[in-house]
């Protein structure tokens, strides 16, 4: 049997997903034995020309991590799509925009001002340095996930994808036994299924943050007032964060029936907030609880802001291109 040809690519990413691939330890040797890695910028030094040289569909599968932030990200995603049979959105950024999707809350000018300061220091699409013409890829007006740019066959969720999920993908890969396209390599159920904490169905009467308050290690974090995203998040990670006293931040994205993870969890939290007794002061008391939120978008859309229903903050888009 011919060896499979695989690729690994990073777009707007932190590098964590590439590291996560190695978390499977010696299983990576099985992968290398079963497949040739044609593309892995993080580990080798392939050139775009190499990639362009492959025939359409020549690569069997590409694990694509990172979001689409720049024109280069977009072009590479489109190029890779033509060269590979199967494309995997690997990690939260490729799946749903990830943490950096929160940047859609700011305009490009705001982002540049924050990062580069004075407009004079902003990077230019074209410039000449020491006699060389330099070209930078365009910084897209809005960050997107991979699926908004090209068709995606599989999703491997997580920030980064946990070891057992990566391992399951590799096992299927090595065995040449990939599931039906559209499969998300995670549990179909929410995280609560895997979480060992006990839930007492309590009303939420206060909003606590993990850096400021200690939590009871045996009781449901939501019951205690910590905004654990577990209920609105796919399982598959074995609830490692809640097991370590950290509320789930929702990196695996929502279950199949949910269009907008943050909205789903906000609905849930809104339903759970309550002061017990019905009465005249109830609404005011509930408003007071809601006022305890410091960062609603960052809490409920930490990984899904770019693919949420609202996608970005409304702002007059600056028409100048850089």
């Amino acid at each position: 049997m011919a060896k499979a040809k695989i690729g690994i690519y990073w777009a707007a990413a932190c590098g964590g997903c590439d590291c996560a691939l190695l978390e499977v330890n010696e299983q990576i040797l099985d992968v290398v034995a079963a497949a040739d890695i044609l593309l892995w910028p993080c580990a080798a030094d392939p050139k775009y020309s190499d990639l362009r040289g492959y025939k359409n569909g020549e690569i069997d599968i590409v694990l694509f991590n990172g979001a689409i932030r720049t024109q280069e990200n977009r072009e590479l995603a489109q190029l890779i799509r033509t060269k590979t049979k199967y494309l995997v959105a690997f990690g939260s950024c490729a799946q749903s925009g990830g943490v950096i999707g929160l940047a859609n809350q700011s305009s490009r000018d705001e982002i540049f001002s924050t990062v580069f300061g004075d407009q004079a220091n902003w990077p230019q699409l074209s410039s000449n340095q020491d006699g060389y013409d330099l070209h930078l890829p365009e910084f897209l007006p809005r960050l997107t996930n991979l699926a908004e740019v090209v068709e995606v066959d599989y999703v491997v969720p997580g920030c980064p994808p946990p070891k057992q999920i990566v391992s399951a993908l590799f096992t299927a890969l090595v065995a040449g036994d990939l599931p039906a396209t559209g499969t998300v390599f995670a549990s179909s159920k929410n995280l609560c299924e895997e979480c060992s904490r006990e839930r007492e169905q309590l009303k939420i009467t206060q909003i606590l943050r993990p850096h400021a308050h200690e939590s009871d290690p045996d009781k449901c974090l939501l019951d205690q007032g910590f905004m654990c995203m577990g209920p609105a998040t796919r399982g598959g990670c074995l609830a490692v964060c809640p097991a370590a006293n950290m509320p789930c931040t929702g990196c695996a994205g929502p279950t199949a029936n949910i269009r907008d993870q943050g909205a789903a969890m906000l609905n849930t939290v809104a339903s759970l907030i309550g002061t017990g007794e019905e009465g005249e002061d109830q609404l005011a008391a509930e408003d007071a609880i809601l006022a305890q939120f410091d960062d609603i978008v960052g809490t409920f859309y930490r990984f899904g802001a770019a693919t949420s229903i609202f996608k970005e903050r409304y702002h007059e888009r600056n028409a100048t291109t850089r």
């Binding site: 929410n190 839930r199 209920p231």
Partner: peptide
């Protein structure tokens, strides 16, 4: 209730 998806968080029960 879709049993394939429900993870038993129990939010609905109290509602």
């Amino acid at each position: 209730i879709d049993e394939e998806i429900c993870g038993g968080c129990g939010v609905c029960v109290g509602m």
